[in-house]
């Protein structure tokens, strides 16, 4: 019984918060140290602490997809992830899509096909598509549609998004 009580005390010491604590986040290959409360979401920390405002805060309830980022390579809603849950796990945001000063082929295709109007949903859609193309570089139309099911575009640019993504898929097929 004594052991249980003692381990209970040790267990209570593992609680972190509710105040700020130091977290190490890995975003787009870079390590960031931040001081944040456990209640801060990954989205808020990305935007307000790291200045990475690509992921957008719209519904803040997992109902729009504008905050989509990749966590360990898969798309998630960063408004429903606590930053503290992401310690040590690679996060990718739209800011990391460019490499060596060149736009990602998906970004270039969005420009070429005019795949947005207001652009607010674009970073999230790009990240959903990036995850798809990372595991399948020439997806079918159905696969593209399914990949962006969790991203709303209220301007209604869906058909241009589809064209843009399929143009990249076709280009990859020919390589």
């Amino acid at each position: 019984m004594k052991d249980t009580v003692r381990s209970g005390v040790l267990a209570q010491r593992r609680r972190r918060g509710p105040g700020k604590l130091q977290l190490r986040l890995n975003v787009n290959g870079e390590t960031y140290e931040v001081m944040v409360e456990p209640r801060r979401t990954l989205l808020d920390v990305l935007r307000d602490d790291l200045g990475l405002t690509g992921a957008k805060k719209v519904c803040d309830r997992g109902q729009c997809g504008a905050c989509t980022v990749l966590l360990q390579g898969v798309p998630v809603y960063s408004c429903l992830k606590l930053a503290i849950e992401c310690e040590g796990k690679p996060v990718e945001t739209v800011e990391g899509l460019m490499s060596n000063g060149r736009l990602h082929p998906l970004q270039q295709a969005f420009i070429d096909h005019d795949a947005f109007q207001c652009g607010f949903c674009t970073p999230g859609i790009l990240m959903s598509l990036k995850a798809l193309f990372d595991r399948n570089d020439s997806p079918t139309e159905d696969e593209v549609r399914q990949a962006v099911e969790g991203n709303l575009c209220r301007c209604g640019a869906y058909s241009k998004v589809l064209q843009a993504a399929l143009s990249v898929a076709r280009a990859n097929e020919q390589e």
Partner: peptide, 30 residues
């Protein structure tokens, strides 16, 4: 504001639930 703890086992998680009346498990969080 809340505290946060990583459970190490199911026993650990349910003991925390028992010890802190005002607690909740977080998995997907959605």
């Amino acid at each position: 504001a809340f505290d946060y703890v990583d459970a190490t086992s199911v026993e650990d998680a349910t003991t925390f639930l028992q010890d802190e009346a005002d607690s909740a498990l977080i998995a997907g969080g959605t």
